[in-house]
């Protein structure tokens, strides 16, 4: 009973907060609602026994990406947004596509068949702590992918500086 109640609280908060994020007219309000949303998603990860992912969610998303968003929103200093009559303009297209995608995905979930359980049971992870189990897998089986991700981050750093740099004349 209590796990279901816990899940219901988090699910309603996540859906409601994401609706608030996409419907607020002022981007600053959207960013702040998104901060609360990310904390709830981190809580849901804790509920799924993924404490490392919850920590990463809070550190990277709430601490990094959202601060970047807030920085850019405040840097742009949009005065015309407040005067804009309608925040949502193209809603018929959006609602049609959304309902279509929603129905298609609900139907595809109904035919889902679970794979046989792997070897990382809760007891095994509990014995060998979550971070250690994840790190062992990440640095052995997924080492190449890990290096590729480091390259992607390097490209992001270089690209962001090159794109946002002010060009000097002459």
């Amino acid at each position: 009973m209590i796990p279901e109640l816990f899940f219901a609280y988090f699910a309603f908060m996540i859906v409601g907060l994401s609706l608030l994020v996409v419907t607020r007219r002022n981007p600053v309000h959207s960013v702040l609602w998104m901060l609360l949303l990310f904390f709830h998603i981190a809580g849901m990860y804790l509920f799924l026994n993924a404490e490392f992912m919850a920590a990463i969610q809070v550190i990277v998303y709430a601490g990094g990406i959202l601060v970047l968003f807030l920085f850019v929103v405040l840097l742009m200093n949009l005065k015309d947004v407040a005067q804009m009559k309608k925040g949502i303009t193209a809603w018929p297209t959006g609602v049609t596509f959304t309902i279509g995608i929603f129905i298609a995905m609900i139907y595809s979930v109904r035919s889902f068949i679970a794979a046989p359980p792997g070897r990382y049971s809760i007891e095994m992870i509990q014995q060998e702590t979550h971070v250690k189990a994840l790190g062992k897998l990440l640095y052995t089986d997924f080492l190449f992918q890990f290096e590729v991700v480091s390259l992607i981050l390097l490209i992001a750093i270089v690209g962001a500086i090159v794109l946002a740099k002010r060009k000097f004349k002459g």
């Binding site: 859906v15 994401s18 996409v22 949502i88 303009t89 193209a90 809603w91 297209t93 959006g94 959304t98």
Partner: peptide, 8 residues
Amino acid sequence: IGVLGFLS
């Protein structure tokens, strides 16, 4: 909801 926000 993300798709809705992106399209509308």
